[in-house]
Amino acid sequence: MPDLNKIDKIIKSYENTRTPLIYILKDVQKEYGLLSDEILTRVAKKTAIPLSEIYGVATFYSLFTTTAKGKHIVRCCNNAPCHVKGSKEVLDHIKSYLGVETGETTADGSFTLEFTSCLGLCAVAPVMMVDNEVYGNLTPEKAVAILKDYKMKGTSNA
């Protein structure tokens, strides 16, 4: 069980902020990696905001997560320009390389695969994001090579 006392400190740091919930959730997720039941219940207790409302906010924004995710988050654009430029083939290759469907996390916990809406980079479509990095002009092979790099880096660091 994680140490929930850090939540209280985060909430305290926003005590002079109007409508601080999104900031609090952002910092709490950064600290714990997810917004679980016990974590949000603590936020509810300390902010006196109903848990159902906090849960509504946590599930409204796609960058918040209530479940544990992989070490790296891969977000593939599925909007029209990327689609026209072959994003489906890219995605299919990523899926078979990682062995997961979109919305799932690999068994070793290294990657979570998700969709994203337009990133505003249609000129270099198809695109994907890995964590905070953007990659454009993808081909199926290029995309898989990028992910292989991430995996290698992960093992060498370990």
Binding site: D37, L40, L51, S52, I54, Y55, G56, T59, F60, S62
Partner: peptide
């Protein structure tokens, strides 16, 4: 009482209890 709230967004939105 706030036992019920909205979950998720857009096409997937629905009424639910937390978690």
């Amino acid at each position: 009482v706030s036992a019920l709230g909205m979950e998720s967004r857009g096409y997937d939105v629905w009424v639910d209890t937390p978690f």
